[in-house]
Nucleic acid binder design. Structure first.
Lengths: 301, 301
DNA sequence: CGTAGTCATCGGATCATCCGATGGAAATTT
DNA sequence: AAATTTCCATCGGATGATCCGATGACTACG
């Protein structure tokens, strides 16, 4: 059985790598510079490895091995944190800080109904919200800067674990005087011959809507891409074309009195909303426990 | 910044889970029972979590949370070990114990040429060999019981990292008096109408050979599956049918004087031999350094 | 009722870690 | 060129964590 490096010393090393300065790294660890310096030296002795180039340079310079060790130290430290977090999560589930990422085509429309429910059922939960495109949210999730994502499935979310929450059907949004507005339901087939407006690239809603209509991506005229669902609706109201909006957004008030008619499609298509989290997160069980409440908010009128 | 659990106490906990007995776990950790007991209690207090059911039972019983914590403690400990191992590997690369798994259609034929080369170039390397089917080797690799695999690609080796070492072409093996033995090269197309003998299920060589001939798996008569390349050759010698053998095995002496003719095929097909290791292994760089030597042994006459 | 087995607790010794002060080298200023 | 500043390494002494051996408490079993 080999002797394991001390987590404290690993923390010193990681802090030193982050700050590039003994003194600042020391105060970040709430110890004196001498302690941190001695800790690094002791670590180098225990590992029998040169981590820093001791050339008397102004700033500490890491050897290649040193950088490698720093990377492994980071993962070891977060694995240790996971032990403590698992215990903390079991102590009082669904409490404490939770960093939630939401895509822009869900957030503004769902949160007004979701937040009161969450405050009601999990009063000790402290939600930190961040709204961004799927791709960036997934990056932040994998980087550990977010704990949980609320987005539209399927998505390229790597090795994250996902849980579907419910269907969000698409509705056709038309200018009020459009000839199709007279019909009870809009056939998907005719959309291909209309001027179909979409969100700009990067919004998953764009791809999901095209998929739903079985249209190729190129069919969408690029100059008419909107930057948000609100502006998209305004464009429809101006008679520039038609679009698909998620029912969630309509219920969330995206129309806001604009002269736009929404009609169901002749075949129910839509997107599936879902949660995503790091598969190895100590709080995975908690997140699953959150799902019913969110699903309820999605299904609510 | 949260307070991290002590690795020592985590080790106590894991040992207790493994031995199910305070005294034996303690001696496994080279401490007294009292130390281990106190360590577990201190860990429970620091985590503020009940890990054991303290019912005065004969054997320690873990709570569900306790088992979860044990699992996370294991990964945290191995992450810490990885730090130390990275330093050790950098100190003297390609030395120390290396647990190598090899599939049966490579091992007996390559090792006689490989081992002297390894002893020559890496005299401090201590090889532990295990021969088994691909599937079990991959299991052992992921379970940490093996460090490195030598097998035929492509294989379902999960998230392991692989490095190709070289091509091992297939040759047709025929009874010496077989009519095809008179030809310089054997056309792949005619093999479908011959009685094709293969290794039994589980050997990757079986699938790779069928793939090479673009034959469906069902085409192989099950009653004629052999358990090793040696017995397969004996079956060919007895006139039961024909087969494909890797050139590596022929050069390794699999024929052993049997009345069997080997002929190249009309199109060069074969399998790719390669190495596989856990992507996060601290010794990944070492393993890559091993590849040229093995490739040389494969390519050698 | 006594014995064996097992885990928890206690007192005292030991060792790792920490801090403040100081040393010494390089960069910067005067 | 000398003085000053900045920065990292080292030292001595205080503190706290960890360890051990002995002992206590509980259960199981004959």
């Amino acid at each position: 059985m080999t002797t394991l490096p001390s987590p404290r010393q690993l923390r010193y090393l990681v802090a030193l790598a982050e700050h590039g300065h003994f003194g600042r790294a020391a105060s970040a660890c709430a110890v004196t510079q001498s302690t941190l310096s001695a800790g690094i030296i002791a670590l180098e002795q225990q590992l029998d490895a040169a981590l820093l180039e001791r050339t008397g340079a102004k700033r500490p310079v890491f050897t290649p091995l040193g950088l490698e060790i720093v990377a492994r130290a980071r993962t070891a430290l977060s694995a240790l944190e996971a032990v403590a977090e698992t215990a903390a999560a079991a102590r009082e589930p669904l409490s404490g800080p939770l960093r939630l990422g939401i895509i822009p085509t869900i957030g503004p429309f769902l949160l007004p109904r979701l937040m009161p429910r969450l405050r009601d059922r999990f009063p000790r939960l402290k939600l930190w919200l961040r709204e961004d495109l799927t791709e960036r949210l997934v990056e932040a999730l994998e980087g550990g800067r977010l704990d949980l994502l609320l987005l539209a499935l399927p998505c390229a979310c790597g090795d994250a674990e996902t849980e579907p929450l419910g269907m969000d059907p698409f509705l056709a949004a038309l200018p009020q005087d459009h000839r199709l507005a007279a019909r009870e339901r809009v056939p998907i087939a005719v959309l291909g011959s209309e001027r179909l407006l979409l969100l700009e690239d990067g919004h998953c809603l764009r791809e999901h809507a095209l998929d739903a209509c079985s249209l190729p991506g190129a069919a969408a005229g690029e100059p008419f891409a909107a930057t948000s669902l609100y502006t998209l609706i305004q464009m429809v109201a101006s008679g520039l074309g038609v679009t698909l909006v998620p029912r969630l957004a309509v219920r969330g008030g995206v129309l806001a009195g604009a002269p736009v008619a929404v009609r169901p499609l002749d075949r129910e298509v839509g997107r599936t909303l879902g949660l995503a989290w790091r598969a190895r997160s100590p709080r995975a069980a908690e997140f699953r426990g959150l799902a019913p409440t969110i699903a309820e908010a999605i299904a609510a009128e």
